[in-house]
């Protein structure tokens, strides 16, 4: 007998809570997914497409939906760490398929060779190349994200990626890199 009572009581409670949960699920529904925005903020915004997505935002959306977090080569380990922290998942090593040399670089147009075809301008995701048809183009160094998307489209191979030069401001106090010159 007591079992029947137990079943009835539990059944009633379950009914009640089920209704409550059903109500709550509709009443407190969260719209949108701010996670993708947060991930996007962590990405380096090179818009380089090395992750297999057309730009950083699409990759951020993909990560929010379960894509691997280790595909951003320009961001490197630092970015993976941050995303892992944000999403509460484990840090992974950079995907080998996406691992490249990620020293910061900027595009440089060898101006003698440029024929002004504007192909690189169209390829640049951040409008960092200026120039006009049949005129030589040039790279706005400060806007260039170093994504190297402009390199491939150039018909005359006049674009090369050059590492960013160290200046007094950007010097990282690496004393070992100082050449100790042998002066007589």
């Amino acid at each position: 007998m007591s079992i029947v009572i137990a079943i009835l009581v539990i059944g009633f409670i379950a009914l009640l809570f089920g209704a409550l949960l059903g109500y709550a699920s509709i009443r407190f529904k969260v719209e949108g997914d701010p996670l993708a925005e947060q991930i996007d903020d962590l990405l380096p915004q090179t818009q380089c497409g090395q992750c297999g997505y057309p730009g950083c935002k699409p990759y951020a959306d993909a990560v929010a939906n379960g894509e691997a977090i280790n595909k951003c080569a320009p961001g490197g380990e630092e970015t993976i760490k941050k995303i892992a922290e944000l999403m509460g998942v484990e840090v992974q090593a950079l995907d080998e398929n996406h691992a490249t040399d990620n020293t910061p670089k900027v595009a440089f147009i060898i101006e003698e060779d440029c024929i002004g075809c504007t192909k690189c301008i169209q390829a640049c995701p951040v409008d960092a190349i200026i120039g006009t048809t049949k005129q030589m183009h040039t790279v706005i160094v400060d806007e260039c994200t170093g994504c190297d998307l402009c390199v491939a489209p150039c018909p005359v191979d006049c674009i090369e990626m050059r590492p960013i030069e160290t200046t007094k401001q950007s010097w990282q106090w690496d004393l070992n890199s100082i050449p100790v010159t042998q002066v007589d």
Partner: peptide
């Protein structure tokens, strides 16, 4: 909304009843 509430409530209640019944049977055994 009504539908959602009803559905959730029913499903949960059914599971609760079944589970309790199982436990009850084992207990009596």
């Amino acid at each position: 909304m009504r539908k959602a509430i009803q559905k959730n409530a029913n499903v949960l209640a059914i599971f609760a009843i079944v589970c309790t019944a199982v436990v009850g049977i084992v207990h009596s055994l």
